[in-house]
Design a protein around this nucleic acid. Structure first.
Lengths: 192, 192, 192, 192
DNA sequence: TATGAATGAGACTTCATTCAT
DNA sequence: CATGAATGAAGTCTCATTCAT
């Protein structure tokens, strides 16, 4: 009997790569099977459908990442420390697995419809952390969603530039810069 | 029988809406024809193919927007003024046609491959403007791409939040706030 | 523009024939398309799915036949006359379109699950007619379902023998014989 | 590890049930294995293929039933006695194993193609018996096939009604009624 | 220019069967 | 004998595109 779990992992990595390269819809089962060196039918022993494969790839990592962020921020007491930890984690995550990161980015639009409101995502964690900092008067109180959007934008867009090779350095080398930028965004307040 | 150009415009708007709602690949010619109240074959009187429709929708507006930004920034002399004008324009554009904006956002990943390097985009304009400001010592000199990414991120992510209804105000109401945030991002760069 | 309704009819007849020859599940869309001289996709312009094709073929004719039987029996006053008319109709139907008849017979097992109780079928009409005759004391009163089963069996099995070519005469030539047999089944009663 | 012959029997019963419930083609090897609590591959230790399983299930019982009928009729001398014995046997068989009976009924259309003419079936036995009775002038001489069809129809259709629960009594309770009806069908031919 | 029936390549998926363990 | 992961042929269905009207 062949080892099933290895095959599942192989399918996951292969699909991830192709999804990022060509897009989910543009990637066929045959593409995946071919690239993974397995038969088309084999994929269905491990995933119910292509949709479910895309969703499992997304949700598992998307939610796991949010959990990890949440766990991290709890180790610190101030907004600045929490943010620093989260940004470092973010950068590390990107550098360690850029393909997975790109997939999460790419799949967002399509898969986000399946994310129920009660699920904890990186966005909700960030909002919670910022809201806490504002409550503790560490930064001026402004609209939380807006502040979160701006902070997220700074980090995310840099990652996107990196993914497109418009930036050459590793994200981890930039984490201090990113933190500084985010902090200025937060402390500058909404209306001075 | 409708006027030809009106039909083409109808197809464009209908397709735009559906592309944003369901994604490009997920939208069929039949979907578009049905929603526009025309026959399937009629679409091909106005567009060569579905791909060409998606591309025309993207490139026309994407490039026109960049041209508009470039024209605007030239009217001002300082980075701050240029940036202010561009952000105002950005917000106005979003508020005036959120569907079109969402489409440009969504279509980026797929269509960007067809964007040749010599084409002027919002990103290249922004980089040019920031580079100019740095050259004129209006802001500390740092890596241009990085600075552009962060500025773009602030504005873009807020727009995305707005598109997802996580933010309720019109973007135009936020343009001053966005400018302030972007400015802090740019000026804080070198020495805090 | 080609004439659509002719194509639909062509598909119906071709499918009917193949379904009877090979069985429904054993007949592929490609079989039908090939035999009808159309493309596979064309079938789906006229029928939603293979299942729906099989069901439409069944239900339309099954229910229409029941309606026809019911209309006929109402023209007569006695059970014997009603039965005679129904059996003649049954035989005529078979002789006129043995393939369709065989299909109804064959498809019964699979499609009957979709027949809701309130639908009028040949069986319910027959039961109603027999029940009426018993009520009017034209035949001894016995269990209606049992009587209906036996009468139906006489006629149906002869048709099946005919379909298998175990009998050579046309059914219409046998209708008097069948009526006589059915009548004896009914008048002999359960317990004399 | 189970005894081999028990496993084979388990597969047979499980398959029989599923075949009747869902149809042969609609039942998958996985269905059978799952319901029987064995692995998919195990089935192939006992049956060459799914087709062969279906065929073995059919032929064994179909032919055995015919043999049994033939053996029985030989014990009697008159058509009426032979028929009575056969009908009693038929009813007993149904009551004892309605699932098996339903399977034989259901599988007929598909499997009958594999039944060679020289094989003795219930139909051939019945025809032989009726032919004998006619030769001995116990009943009026008519076309044997027609008479057999009608007699078979009476009994079979009642069984089918029973299988569909349109009749509630056990068939064995009805065997006298069935015999009476069949006898009237056979005798009514010549002189009323 | 508009129509919409027809096309057919190709997508996803199922499933009987094999075979290494 | 039993297992169940792997196979791959084949099935159903979709959909961008064509073309006769």
């Amino acid at each position: 009997m062949r080892d099933g779990s290895k095959t599942k992992e192989l399918i996951a990595r292969t699909a991830l790569l192709l999804f990022v390269e060509k897009g989910i819809t543009e990637t066929t089962i045959r593409d995946i099977a071919g690239a993974a060196g397995i038969a088309e039918g084999t994929l269905y022993r491990h995933y119910e459908s292509k949709d479910q494969l895309a969703w499992e790839l997304f949700s598992t990592n998307y939610l796991a990442f949010a959990r990890e962020l949440d766990r991290l921020q709890e180790e610190y007491d101030t907004l600045k420390d929490k943010l620093a930890a989260m940004i470092r984690q973010f950068c590390t995550f990107f550098d360690r697995d850029p393909v997975l990161f790109s997939y999460l980015l790419l799949a967002q639009h399509a898969q986000l419809k399946k994310v129920t409101p009660e699920m904890q995502t990186a966005v909700t964690v960030l909002q919670k952390v910022i809201a806490g900092g504002m409550a503790r008067r560490e930064v001026p109180e402004t609209e939380v969603e807006l502040a979160a959007a701006m902070v997220l934008g700074v980090v995310l867009e840099v990652a996107i530039f990196k993914a497109y090779n418009r930036i050459t350095q590793d994200l981890s080398q930039l984490s201090e810069t990113l933190l500084a930028a985010c902090w200025r965004v937060l402390t500058g307040g909404g209306t001075p």
